[in-house]
């Protein structure tokens, strides 16, 4: 399998700012890697460095051990799906998907077959004659996907491809992109600011902050053993407790709320909200710190705002976080 991407000590300096600070990252062939971060973290800059649209100030990018740092984007043979799709408005769906093939001198029946196949893969076989403006957001996204994979690139880069879609459509396309990844078996590098999306889709996640990678790992590693307070707070809801100079992380689903006479941290219930299948209970400790518990409790034990309670957890559910 091919398509391994190596980013080696890449720095990108703009006048007055440092977008990437000595970033190194290895993406294995066939892996689904997500670059996660808030806006300004450098995740899009990193993707653009790999794609070739941004030239790094220093450092290098390798694909399958070949240095491509100075290679212009159109010779990199990497597929890319853009934010807001970047479909060519003056071409219909077929011509959009055919574009990369025509550039590679694919003609005639071969062209029609491959475009048809790509459109089948994204389940848009019948819409070849339409213009991009006549498609829904979800359909446009699929065309952009078909166009990026039709020339069989070794790596597919995606820059917040689902950002413009509503929640249900986004979740549906997340599953389709996962399916596509399985079927094609090529490397995916996916950029998003949505931590839920990152955790659902990726083999591994690289979390960026202020131009640096703060942690790389599987979604489970990042969620369960965060390397810092920032990682813990970025991924999901978290309760962070100061303990002898260290930090203790207890996820809301592991925090239990009990009667005030039991062992644990004393607190007062502030809010009780019914969410989906369970309850979200927010309590306040004497110092003012708020803790969150997610639980499914029986109605007769339902705490009310103002009740005195105790928050506790079992030791194997808590994690020490480097401060």
């Amino acid at each position: 399998m091919t398509g391994a991407v190596d980013v080696r000590a890449v720095t990108k300096r703009y006048p007055g700012s440092l977008a990437l600070d000595e970033v190194s990252l290895h993406v294995a062939a066939g892996e689904f890697m997500t670059l996660l971060g808030s806006s300004g973290s450098g995740k899009s800059t990193l993707l653009n460095v790999v794609a070739g649209f941004t030239e790094p100030t220093s450092g290098s990018v390798l694909v399958d051990d070949a240095d491509i740092t100075g290679v212009p984007p159109h010779r990199r043979e990497l597929g890319m799906v853009f934010q807001h799709y970047a479909l060519f408005p003056h071409m219909n769906v077929f011509e959009n998907v055919a574009f990369p093939l025509r550039r590679r001198k694919v003609r005639g029946a071969e062209l029609r077959r491959r475009v048809g196949d790509a459109l089948e893969v994204v389940e848009l076989g019948a819409l070849g004659e339409r213009r991009p403006a006549q498609l829904s957001g979800g359909q446009q996204q699929r065309v952009a996907l078909a166009r990026a994979i039709v020339f069989q690139p070794r790596v597919l880069l995606m820059d917040e491809p689902l950002g413009a879609l509503d929640k249900r459509l986004r979740e549906q396309l997340q599953l389709e992109i996962k399916r596509l990844h399985r079927e094609l078996g090529i490397t995916f590098v996916f950029v998003t600011h949505d931590q839920e999306e990152a955790l659902t889709m990726s083999d591994r996640v690289a979390l960026l902050r202020e131009g640096r990678i703060v942690q790389v790992g599987t979604p489970q590693e990042l969620y369960e053993t965060p390397a810092s307070r920032y990682v813990a707070e970025f991924l999901g809801e978290s309760n962070l407790l100061d303990e002898d100079g260290g930090l203790l992380l207890v996820r809301p689903q592991h925090l239990r709320i009990g009667p005030p006479d039991g062992p644990g941290l004393r607190a007062v219930v502030r809010e009780v909200i019914y969410v989906g299948g369970g309850l979200r209970i927010e309590v306040e400790r004497p110092g003012g710190q708020r803790l969150v518990a997610r639980t499914t409790v029986r109605p007769e034990e339902l705490p009310r705002p103002g009740d005195e309670v105790v928050a506790h957890w079992s030791e194997h559910d808590s994690v020490n976080v480097p401060a």
């Binding site: 159109h74 970047a86 408005p89 990026a148």
Partner: peptide, 25 residues
């Protein structure tokens, strides 16, 4: 400009990007 980047990522060189994407638009 992302349309030009798209064209380049799909394998079009600067000249063909200008002729096939920029100019028509």
């Amino acid at each position: 400009r992302r349309l030009e980047q798209a064209a380049m990522s799909l394998g079009a060189g600067p000249v063909s990007t200008f002729a096939r994407v920029t100019l028509p638009l």
